[in-house]
Simulated scan of single mutants.
Amino acid sequence: MNTNSTYTYQQIARAIEHLTANFREQPSLADLAERVNLSEFHFQRLFTEWAGVSPKKFSQYLTLEHAKQQLRNGVPLAEAAYDAGLSGTGRLHDLFVSIEGVTPGQFKQAGSGLTLSYGVFDSPFGRYVLGAINGKIALLHFLNDDENPETIITAAWPEASLRNSPSEVQFLADQIFPLVGEPVSSPAKPLPILLRGSAFQLKVWEALLKIPEGRLASYDQIADAIGQPTASRAVGTAIGSNPVGYLIPCHRVIKKTGLFGGYRWGSERKQAMLGWEAARVNG
C-alpha cells in the first residue's frame, strides 16, 4: 500500500463529508477542492485515482435516492458471491474468504496458549490494525488517531497473547486492499477468517458475506435472510460488533428508509466504501 494512502483517504473523506451533507446542492469541483486545500486539477486527479470516477459521478452514489433504488431492486442474499459481480471487476470478492466460527465457550476451552500476531497498515480508507491467529485473520479494525491497537485487540481477544509482528501478517494485508487505481486478482485460495461470537452473531456475519459488492441490504432483509424476521434490532447489534471490517461487509447494510445509518468505524468511512464500490462496479 502506498505510504500516502492514509493521507489521501483523509483528504477524500473530508470531501465526502461535505458531499454527503450538501449532495442536494451538488457542490462544485472548486468548492470541494477548496475544502481540502488543493487545486481543482490536483483534486480531480487525486479523487479519480482513488475512486476510479470523477467527484461529480461519485457524488451520485452517495445520494439517498441511489440507496433507496438499491433497496427497491432487492439484494439477492441467497446468491453466492462467487457468481455475482466477478466478471470484469478484477477485484477481491467477499466470498473469497473462508470463515471458521467459534462461540466464546468453545474458544475458552481451547483458547489458552494462542498467540495473536498483528501489524498496522495503510488502506484506501485509512490506517487499520490487522490481527491473525495461526495465519487466520481474527481482527481488522480501522484506527482513529487516538486509538491504541493493543487495546482494541485485547478487547476482542482477551485470552490471546499479543505479538507486534507486521511481517507475520503482511501476506494477508497484501491480499485485502488494492493499491489505489489498481485492480486486485482474486487470491489463489480463500482468505481464512477466525471469528469469535455467539451462534446468532456468526449467522448474521455469514449473511453479510452474501451481499454482492456494489449492492445494499437493510437490517430487515438480513433478519429475513437468517430466518428471524422480527430480530432486526438484534441484527443491528450483531452487525455493529463485527470484528473484521471490510472483508465482512457490514458497511453494505443501511436503514430500510434509504438512510446510510451509523458505522462502527465512522459514517464518512462507510460512505467512502459504498461510493468506492459502486463506482468500481458500475463504472
Rank of each mutant, 00 (worst) to 15 (best):
D174R: 09
A138S: 14
I99Q: 06
E34I: 00
V75L: 07
N4Y: 13
S39Q: 08
P229C: 15
F142A: 07
L130R: 03
V120F: 04
G90W: 07
V204E: 02
I254L: 14
G113A: 09
E277W: 00
E206S: 13
S241I: 01
F107N: 04
G266D: 10
P183R: 02
L29W: 00
G261D: 12
A279V: 01
H93A: 15
I239T: 08
R280D: 10
G85K: 06
G261H: 05
P166C: 09
M273A: 14
F260V: 10
E277M: 04
A51E: 06
A207T: 06
L38V: 06
Y118D: 04
G135E: 10
G266L: 09
D146R: 05
A160R: 00
K189P: 13
A272K: 02
A217H: 01
P166R: 00
V129C: 09
F107P: 01
S186N: 12
N148W: 01
S117I: 01
E150K: 12
A207E: 07
E17N: 08
L179V: 14
G283I: 11
V253L: 06
G181E: 14
A278D: 08
D94L: 02
P190T: 12
Y128H: 07
P158R: 01
N164D: 15
R252L: 15
L172A: 08
Y82F: 12
V244W: 04
A272Y: 09
Q109N: 05
I211V: 12
L38N: 04
N242Q: 10
G119F: 06
S185E: 12
G135I: 11
L195S: 07
K189Y: 15
T257L: 09
G245T: 08
A80G: 11
F107M: 06
L130V: 10
G245S: 15
A78P: 04
T6G: 03
L208C: 11
V75T: 08
A80Y: 06
E268D: 08
L77I: 15
S267C: 14
A138G: 11
S123A: 14
G126T: 14
A84W: 02
L208A: 10
S198V: 03
N164W: 08
A234E: 05
N282P: 03
A81N: 05
F260T: 06
K136W: 04
N4K: 13
L19M: 13
E159P: 02
G88C: 11
S185I: 10
I254F: 09
Y246I: 10
Q11R: 09
I193G: 13
L194K: 01
F142R: 02
E65S: 11
T151R: 05
S28R: 01
V129L: 13
D94G: 01
Q70F: 01
L116P: 07
I226Y: 05
A199N: 08
S87Q: 15
L116E: 02
G119W: 04
L46G: 00
V184G: 15
D224N: 14
N164K: 11
Q228C: 12
G111R: 01
D220I: 10
I211C: 04
G214C: 10
L29M: 12
A13W: 05
A155Q: 07
F23N: 12
S267M: 11
T151I: 12
R24W: 03
W50L: 07
G113L: 05
A84F: 03
E159Y: 01
Q69D: 13
A155E: 11
D174E: 15
C250T: 13
I226Q: 05
F96M: 14
R280Y: 06
G105D: 09
L92D: 05
F47N: 00
S161N: 06
S185H: 07
L143K: 00
